[in-house]
Design a protein around this nucleic acid. Structure first.
Lengths: 202, 202
DNA sequence: ACAGATTGTTACTGATAAGTAAGATGAATG
DNA sequence: CATTCATCTTACTTATCAGTAACAATCTGT
């Protein structure tokens, strides 16, 4: 038999089911909130029944944790990629911010759910995500400090500036409507203009 | 009998009980989340039993709605007061931002709960709070537009700027720790510096 | 001290939903 | 065609909690 081919297909099928489950849960948690969504709801949206969900996730809170991880990890990947390009300059910042905004809008639901449902995570998941977030904030702060230093424009309180920028951008997960006035790209550009003034119009 | 005096005392007692119930519920909803907090928990913190809570609030969600209202109303009062001082100028903005930040920090728990638990509100309460929030955002936008026009420093997209500022400040309800590095006043001052750069260093 | 109102408690109901055990269905293999 | 294995479903258990009805204690003024 085509042993490995078979095995690959199996894995792909499993991954697809897992992904669809995540998608359905993400939509529902975002629309109705975590506790107002039952696993029966999730299953129904997939056209299956509840135990199906348990073949891919050990519990409802595992599902939540995974949804949250996706959002944080994509944000972290973005800042790591910016830092990997060598010593940050004003230009680094100028290209990072719109990428970050677009990444946030892409995982809008994940991030909104992460923020809203933090208190519904199990302690170990909450800790894990809190650590990721802290790493992310430290990277943002480092990026800001170095970029602003390179531009000879030091920040009075880089930590507060980092929180302000991340807050301004994360906030869009609550109000941004993909079908509204602005496309994700347009918002990204305007948000970037706004944010870059925040560090003195680099 | 001292009819009115009696009546006043009764009302004061009732108001005190109501206030203490709100305080206990606010603390618990903030610490553990709305759905992870039972009305038995709230009652226990007050040293009473559950039906006591029902003498002041019709339901758990009424309690939540009232907690949320307090936060939004205080923010709204702040911007209204700024707009009531006549045509806004750069100076208006400069005095408004720190007041607003301090008001947010004062009702930190209410605002954090409001953001997190939006999906647990009854539709009518959600609508009411959404209307209040929309009014608030419109006022902020108006304040920004006028103040920046007066300073001959027009904003490219005032709506996005308004969301960015409100987001940056509201975000502090999630990370600010009253026992930490910065006092509320210090954070307020630094946040103001940061935010005011956001509109071009007025 | 005592009737009456007020206020709070004990003890319960009913509904909801997470999680699971046991069985049915259907596809791959000999 | 029969057997095995994986996958999904039906049907259930169990715990939790919002909300309430009926009772008890406390305070009020006469």
């Amino acid at each position: 038999m085509a042993r490995t081919a078979n095995s690959n297909l199996r894995e792909e099928v499993a991954a697809l089911k897992r992904q669809r489950t995540l998608d359905a849960a993400t939509d529902l948690f975002y629309e109705k909130g975590y506790t107002n969504t039952t696993l029966d709801d999730v299953a129904a949206r997939l056209g299956v029944t509840k135990p199906f969900v348990y073949t891919n996730f050990g519990s409802k809170s595992d599902l939540l944790a995974e949804i949250c991880r996706i959002g944080v990890r994509s944000a972290l990947a973005e800042v790591n990629s910016a830092l990997a390009q060598g010593e940050p300059t004003a230009e680094t910042l100028r290209s990072f911010v719109p990428r970050y905004v677009e990444s946030v809008l892409k995982s809008q639901k994940n991030i909104a759910v992460n923020i809203r449902e933090e208190k519904n995570l199990l302690p170990e998941h909450a800790q894990e995500l809190s650590d990721l977030r802290q790493t992310f904030m430290a990277q943002i702060e480092a990026l800001l400090v170095k970029a602003c230093a390179a531009a000879d424009h030091p920040l009075p309180d880089p930590r507060v500036a980092a929180f302000a920028i991340v807050g301004a951008i994360s906030w869009s997960t609550f109000w941004y409507n993909p079908g509204g006035r602005l496309s994700a790209q347009e918002l990204s550009a305007r948000m970037t203009d706004t944010i870059l003034n925040l560090v003195g119009g680099l």
